[in-house]
């Protein structure tokens, strides 16, 4: 029963049609929240007592880092769905989410490196958090490369899903790296179990920025997946009539 439910609601055609309906709203809300969170954080949040104004990179770096991990987590759920229930759409979504993951992980690494110059005196350090995030970036690239290296798309989907499931072990390592090892990287500013360790005047714009980044990445993901699904299924009748 569960299998038939999943298959009925996971056809690529329905996905493209349904997501097209709310894509403009997601994109608009994403840009609006990002603009609000960033303007608030850059201009109105108070200066940090220790780091000075360089801490304002937090309103971009933290949302990007969270999304870099969440996108991989989403891909691992899709990979399980593809491996267990053979859901075709799940494989399409992994392939579409991977480039978005590359983009946002690059932004997280880049913003962290720039932030490191005034704060740590170096743009790079082989510490646990930074190295595990670099591994995540390489994982995203590896997933794309693996899929592109097979001419048989179905086989590529299966192998890509296996690689995604294997690589998910890196996500708790990234999350816990600042607790397990002594690193240059500061501990989490917001934690589900411990709440926020920063002042509300910084927390509110940070929360809005996280929401904005999430919605923006969802919008980009919808756009990429639409392109990928239409390309992959271009010989199907529904694509001809949809276009």
């Amino acid at each position: 029963m569960l299998t038939s439910f999943i298959h009925r609601f996971s056809s690529p055609k329905s996905f493209v049609e349904v997501t097209a309906l709310f894509f403009p709203y997601v994109m608009f809300l994403g840009f609006l929240c990002l603009a609000l969170g960033w303007i608030w954080g850059l201009a109105f949040a108070p200066e940090d007592a220790i780091q000075g104004n360089s801490y304002r990179i937090i309103f971009l770096h933290v949302p990007a880092s969270i999304m870099a991990q969440l996108i991989y987590f989403f891909m691992s759920i899709c990979a399980l769905m593809h491996l267990v229930w053979r859901v075709k759409l799940a494989a399409y979504l992994i392939k579409s989410a991977a480039p978005v993951g590359v983009l946002i992980t690059f932004i997280a690494l880049f913003s962290g490196s720039i932030w490191g110059i005034p704060t740590w005196g170096t743009w790079w350090q082989w510490d646990a958090r930074i190295t595990s995030t670099l591994i995540l970036f390489i994982m995203y690239l590896g997933i794309i490369t693996l899929h592109s290296s097979f001419s048989n798309a179905e086989k590529a989907d299966r192998l890509m899903s296996i690689l995604v499931v294997v690589g998910v072990v890196n996500i708790p390592i990234i999350k816990k790296s600042v607790d397990w090892w002594s690193t240059l990287h500061q501990p989490a500013s917001i934690s589900i179990s411990d709440g926020a360790s920063i002042d509300p005047s910084m927390l509110y714009p940070l929360t809005i920025s996280i929401l904005g980044m999430a919605l923006t990445m969802i919008a980009l993901g919808i756009l990429v997946s639409k392109f990928y699904i239409l390309t992959r299924e271009k010989n199907k009748k529904w694509v001809q009539s949809y276009v």
Partner: peptide, 17 residues
């Protein structure tokens, strides 16, 4: 003196997205 770091990060990210 931190503007160059902060603005570089925001502008590059905005451009990439």
């Amino acid at each position: 003196g931190h503007g160059v770091y902060v603005w570089t990060v925001y502008l590059v990210t905005f451009a990439l997205i």
